[in-house]
Design a protein around this nucleic acid. Structure first.
Lengths: 118, 118, 118, 118
DNA sequence: GTGGTCTAGACCACC
DNA sequence: GTGGTCTAGACCACA
């Protein structure tokens, strides 16, 4: 992972966790890497990782067993999907449509770029 | 203009100028509002507007005539379109495709949401 | 550093950073002084230093790690050399040649003045 | 003439006059264009041209006959040469030598670029 | 009138 | 601790 993006690192880490859940790499009840493990492997300050985990815990996607570690919560997949979908439709799509309009790009153009990129 | 978004105001102002160029409201050689005029009309500090203008000048979209004001540069339309298109394709589309993949949304779904929103 | 020159301070600071890179005092990946550190040591307002850093970041010579500081970018030496060389050849040399022509000075004259000045 | 350079326009106009004197296009006693003529031909505000003429008059390079126009002063060639030479040697050459040092350019390199440019 | 630079100080998010 | 943004206000050179 590279962290030169503008988005806050703790949010990038949060997205990384969510992606693994959505891709079913980590499922309900699975233990995810400890704060220390993850912070070492991606070379980020543990405080920052902790903040990500706190963020996800607040949203009921993971939970903590004291002294043992963090685990994927019940129905995490559904919750994550819902969370992402809402924010995607309400926050990203309107901007997407506006940009497409300005740049005179159609859905067909997008499809074409999509195919090229694979 | 409204400044509720999280994006920096000076970038929002930059986008506003670009939009006017893309919509052909301002064309090559046209004078755009002076820093002071714009700062008064949108109730933003002149320093902030200047920052926007400097940003666009750096990218060759507008230029300055000493003591007179800022003007839309030669081929500003093409440059703006190119600039926005590049950043859209390289920065936004990969994220879009990834998100669509994760959320299992197709281009047809997008189109449907698009039609609803109009 | 002294700021008697007419050139804007933020550009002088930019040149100072570039010089250190060209002189290999700071190399790829090195952390450069934080905005606050530098602003204190050279007695300049932090905003002014930030402007210099933003200017160099725009040109890909330094980059920022959030909350940590600014670092010398990959191939910063080459980029800096190229940038300075281009601007020197395109902007300064034509004027130099024209002036030499007007003042009837030869390259030999320049060399002589050079030797005297050392 | 194009006036997008950073140097003040009135100084650019001054240089233009001096060049014509150094190139012996205008000699001692010749009448130079009136402020109005010049301001129209180069599309610049008459105030700006007036400032240039005042600047050169202050330095004894041109003089004014009321109601008639501006004329090249006695020994204007020598004065101009001296003026330019001084400022060139004291102000420009030190910077030139420093830049050459940083960019590792020799006088031979300069000569080569010079030959190419002709 | 125009832009350009600089200072001072505040507030914020982030590491 | 780090940078990033914004405001306010001053001063300057220039057209």
């Amino acid at each position: 992972m590279e962290f030169r993006e503008r988005q806050a690192i703790y949010l990038q880490i949060g997205d990384y966790i969510c992606e693994n859940i959505l891709r079913k790499k980590w499922e309900q009840g699975d233990r995810i890497p400890s704060i220390r493990e993850l912070s070492v492997s991606i070379e980020v300050n543990p405080n920052t990782v902790m903040r990500s985990y706190g963020y996800l815990q607040d949203r009921g996607i993971i939970y903590n067993k004291r002294g043992i570690g963090y685990f994927v919560a019940e129905n995490a997949y559904e919750k994550t999907l819902e969370l992402k979908k809402q924010s995607f439709i309400k926050r990203e799509l309107p901007r997407l449509f506006n940009t497409m309009d300005l740049l005179e790009l159609s859905f067909e153009d997008l499809k074409a770029i999509y195919r090229e990129s694979r």
